[in-house]
């Protein structure tokens, strides 16, 4: 799928969708699953002891 000069991609994906698809393709797990993981970027950090 090639991006085109007007910012769209072939096969009905816009250029942004195409970028998102490439990101998903590059990072996707091998096995699709119905299990949903709730990820959160809010973090907890252990206080150093002492």
């Amino acid at each position: 799928m090639d991006e085109q000069s007007n910012g769209t991609a072939a096969f009905g994906l816009s250029a942004l969708e195409y970028r998102l698809q490439k990101l998903a393709d590059a990072t996707a797990t091998s096995t699709p699953s119905a299990v949903r993981i709730d990820w959160s970027q809010g973090v907890m950090v252990a206080r150093p002891s002492g």
Binding site: R19, L20, L23, A24, T27, A28, T29, P32, S33, R36
Partner: peptide
């Protein structure tokens, strides 16, 4: 596509780089 990102635990920090490539 968002469902795929969530399933794969893709860090959201990666979007800026992906979009900058565009």
């Amino acid at each position: 596509l968002v469902a795929r990102l969530l399933n794969a635990a893709v860090p959201p920090q990666m979007w800026a780089e992906a979009k900058s490539a565009l």
